[in-house]
């Protein structure tokens, strides 16, 4: 049995080269372009991890901030006593555990109920953390002082991105991925053919949550000062959904197409309309929803189809001079 066929080997090769080139960025620029790239890679990982679960199942999860915050807090609490790599593992386990508990409890819900629950989850976790800190420690803010610079965070996030892509690819070609495709198309059918739908969804939710937790953990040293409103910022959840949907969630690399233009757009808006960000972003959202309902990915696929048709038409014309 061969592991990879010819086409897959070529894609893997291209991907490896692309990662290699992107990883060289800190050698070229240590300033603004590195910082915006950290933001881009961060959202690429978050959106891709989100898509692992929400793409096939069509469940819109707003729990990103909850997992992200747990990762951040794991590092904030343990940075003085536990080595950093171990903290990343703990962050993954803690977020995965939360995803497991929540998944078992709620993945029988569907549609809007699940969305509302996950939105509440981030707030719930934030209040629990606040309560714990209020009652068992002297200060709410925690300091995370490390020697990590932007480039270290960038490389860690890039490494994580690679792992997320590989995981996503492995899931897609596994029994689990196949099961998810069926669930996504019709859950009732999936149940009837004997798929344990609840189990499949929970497993995927755990994987997705654990990755998001690791992102939060990697980002903690960047902020120096961690407190609940910043760690469990609901904006993260919304931005992840918007960017992932803008890109398209049918393919694992779909979110990439959303994150890059969106982050750059957001950045340009901040730079050129500092006093009207909310207003301009609102208009951008509406434009996206109206003009790209299927995301950039959907539009690209349309273009692909158009080109094929165009080629066929011109080929016919070529036959009749």
């Amino acid at each position: 049995m061969t592991w990879l066929n010819e086409k897959e080997r070529r894609i893997a090769g291209f991907a490896a080269i692309a990662f290699g080139v992107v990883a060289l960025l800190p050698l070229v620029d240590q300033g603004y372009y590195l910082s915006i790239s950290v933001n881009i890679v961060m959202y690429v990982v978050l959106c891709t991890a989100w898509t692992l679960f929400s793409g096939p199942t069509h469940y819109i999860s707003l729990a990103t901030a909850a997992f992200f915050g747990i990762g951040t807090y794991t590092v904030a609490l343990g940075i003085d006593t536990v080595p950093f790599p171990l903290l990343l593992v703990i962050a993954a386990l803690a977020s995965g555990l939360l995803a497991c508990v929540v998944g078992i409890a709620t993945l029988r819900l569907s549609g809007i109920y699940f969305v509302i629950f996950t939105l509440g989850l981030a707030e719930l976790v934030r209040q629990v953390v606040t309560w714990l800190q209020t009652n068992f420690s002297s200060s709410l803010g925690l300091y995370v002082f490390t020697d990590f610079g932007e480039k270290h965070i960038y490389w860690m996030l890039l490494g994580l991105a690679a792992i997320v892509y590989i995981t996503g690819w492995l899931i897609n070609r596994s029994r689990l991925g196949f099961a998810m495709q069926i669930i996504g198309n019709d859950e009732t059918v999936a149940k009837h053919v004997g798929i344990d739908t609840a189990r499949a969804k929970v497993i995927l939710f755990i994987i997705s949550g654990a990755f998001i937790g690791i992102v939060g953990a990697i980002l903690a040293p960047r902020f120096s000062y961690v407190q609940p409103p910043s760690a469990f910022n609901p904006m993260i959840s919304f931005q992840v959904v918007i960017m992932a949907l803008l890109g398209g969630t049918k393919r694992i690399w779909g979110p990439l197409l959303g994150v890059i233009p969106f982050t750059i757009l957001f950045d340009q808006v901040t730079a050129y309309f500092p006093n009207h960000t909310s207003f301009v972003i609102g208009i951008a959202f509406m434009a996206i929803v109206y003009l790209l309902p299927q995301g950039v990915l959907g539009r690209l696929e349309d273009l692909g189809r158009l080109r094929k048709r165009f080629r066929m038409v011109s080929a016919e014309e070529g036959n009749n001079p």
Binding site: D29, G31, S35, F223, N233, T270, P274
Partner: peptide, 22 residues
Amino acid sequence: IEYDDRTSGEEAIKNIQRLATV
């Protein structure tokens, strides 16, 4: 030169980078 950090740490960091290097 004014930038909005949207009350977010990651934006604030990026803004300072932009101010310093761009």
